[in-house]
Simulated scan of single mutants.
Amino acid sequence: MPDARKAPWSFTHSEVGSRLEELRERRDLTQRAVVDLLLQHHDIRTNISTLSNIENGKKKGLPRELVEALLDVYGAEPQARQHVHDLLSVDTTPAGRTRRPASWRRNATLLGPTQFESYLRMERRASSIDNYERDLLPGLFQTEKYAHAVITGMRPDLNPGQVRELVDVRMERQRQVDEWAVESLRALIDLEAVNAVACDPTQIRRLLQECEKPKQTVRLLPKFGFHPGMAGPFVVMYFPEAAREVAWAEAMTHSVYVDTEASVRLYTEAFTAMWERALTPTETRICLENKIKELQQ
């Protein structure tokens, strides 16, 4: 994916940075010129590196005084200025709200290569989440036993202690889901994932419980020939404060994060096409109930 890049520390900061960069370029100003203008007209000392980090969403703190001065230097119109103010009024930086969960801090090395901590931060702030899973059940719906089997099988490089730590991260994530901003979660799961050996009656009952939660819709996808989901699982998240969506796909050693409109559209259209081919929520529940009966025979 040509526009794949590292996920931002804060989605809001990334959006503010993009808006400021756009305003600067409209004035045809270099970052060097902006540094000089800030000192000359606002008595603010900064440097090109700081401006670059702001524009790229890499700066974890955005001083209000500096942002206001930049808006002045760029001659921002009232509408553009208000948009930046609105973004800054929404706190989407987890560090500004609470400390990182202990399990994240303990396992930063394990979570780092796939940028999974970045995903966890964004997941908490999204208002809607569309999750397609091909071979597995979504992490939010997994029992501890199932999660242990999945992580052990997918990560043979980890020792038993490290597997246990990642299971703990997954379980903590499930315990905290009620604190998230999410208003809608749609889970689309290949039917074959339910037929896998690891899906025992306890795990399927758990999945049935998830089907009953008001904010969630779970649908199973039967085989119907070739389709976009065969490329792998993915998640699409929507952030109302930035009025846009991002897509996330995780592989064994890395993750792909995209936020350009054209690339995200590929994921949203793929999800919609598969969602329309999936079993209805009622059909999904019946299928799961029948699967439990089958396993208990």
Rank of each mutant, 00 (worst) to 15 (best):
Q115K: 08
L110K: 00
S89V: 04
A108Q: 08
R106T: 07
S118N: 08
L71P: 02
V84A: 04
Y74Q: 03
V84H: 00
E117A: 09
E117W: 01
S89L: 05
P94H: 07
Q115I: 12
D135S: 14
L140S: 13
L140Q: 13
Q82L: 11
R121V: 12
T109V: 13
T143E: 10
V67W: 02
G139T: 11
I151A: 15
T114P: 10
L87S: 00
M154S: 14
R106A: 09
P63T: 06
L62M: 00
A69S: 05
K60F: 04
Q142W: 06
P78H: 07
A76Q: 00
P101D: 00
L120S: 06
R125W: 15
K145R: 15
A95R: 08
L71S: 05
W104I: 12
K58A: 14
T114L: 15
L158T: 06
R100I: 12
R64M: 13
I129S: 01
A76T: 01
A76K: 02
E65W: 14
E133Y: 01
L120V: 07
H85V: 03
R64L: 11
R81W: 01
N159I: 03
N159V: 02
L88T: 05
Y74M: 01
Q79E: 13
Y119E: 06
A108V: 10
L110Q: 00
L120R: 00
N107L: 00
A69Q: 01
M122Y: 10
W104N: 10
Q115H: 14
P113C: 09
